[in-house]
Design a protein around this nucleic acid. Sequence first.
DNA 1: TTTTCATATTCGTATTTTTGAATATATTGT
DNA 2: ACAATATATTCAAAAATACGAATATGAAAA
Lengths: 135, 135
Amino acid sequence: MKNYNFERKASDLLALLGNPFRIQIILTIGEGEACVCHLETALNKRQAYISQHLMALRDGGILETRREGKYIFYRLSNPKVFELIRAAGLLAGVQEKDLPMLQIPLQVNKCVCPYCEGEIPMFEKKLHSVVPENE
Amino acid sequence: MKNYNFERKASDLLALLGNPFRIQIILTIGEGEACVCHLETALNKRQAYISQHLMALRDGGILETRREGKYIFYRLSNPKVFELIRAAGLLAGVQEKDLPMLQIPLQVNKCVCPYCEGEIPMFEKKLHSVVPENE
DNA sequence: TTTTCATATTCGTATTTTTGAATATATTGT
DNA sequence: ACAATATATTCAAAAATACGAATATGAAAA
């Protein structure tokens, strides 16, 4: 990995992000953090499936984790990945107004994670305060 | 395609760029243009292989073409894809100084295309004059 | 320490992507 | 019209990826 050439490094990163579900995960986490079970209810997919993608994203350096008791919270390791995704959307013809914005994870109905249960105040979820720049 | 959601549009674009050889092609074309046979000699791959990737990139809106006699010249449809690739490199841990720069295609030894033969002056190849911005 | 809950891992298969080989098409020059 | 050259397309095998099912691990609570 260390001595991969530029094309390889860049394309690995791009390929990692080149999956709609992984993008969904990233958009859901946004500038906050989320545990697996939160994503499970928010995205309505099986736990194992989510874990697999989270692992891939973490191995690729896109996500970082924090353990708190039995929960493991995932967050973006660098808010620039968000800008990269937005830039890709623009290149793909998405209108400026239809681009996603960085936001904290939304409370989800059936979710019982500490955030959705209100055990951690919402504002503490906001880890990145970067607002994607407009041209 | 028209009614794909954001994740799908963005991830399709990212996946398209998520291939080291396609990145190589894009870096080689740079801010100029190149025919298939130029890429063939420059990248030392079979013509069919190159054509396939070029088609994929054109279908994905990354490249545009211009026909001149029996030659077909490919160019970036938007220099921002170059910035996207650079941004991906940065996120992948590439040092700023090791990032590729937009440049016109280099003359290649065994290549017999109009550019390499000097039939079209080099400076005419420079289609995009955008210099990737530094922070 | 046993149970429970959150998350990780392993495994198998369906699907997609990659890539080479062969072949087709289009343009130019003779 | 024919040959030569540049590029596109089709086909198939190999490789990689996606994704579900089952199972394992690890922390907390009883």
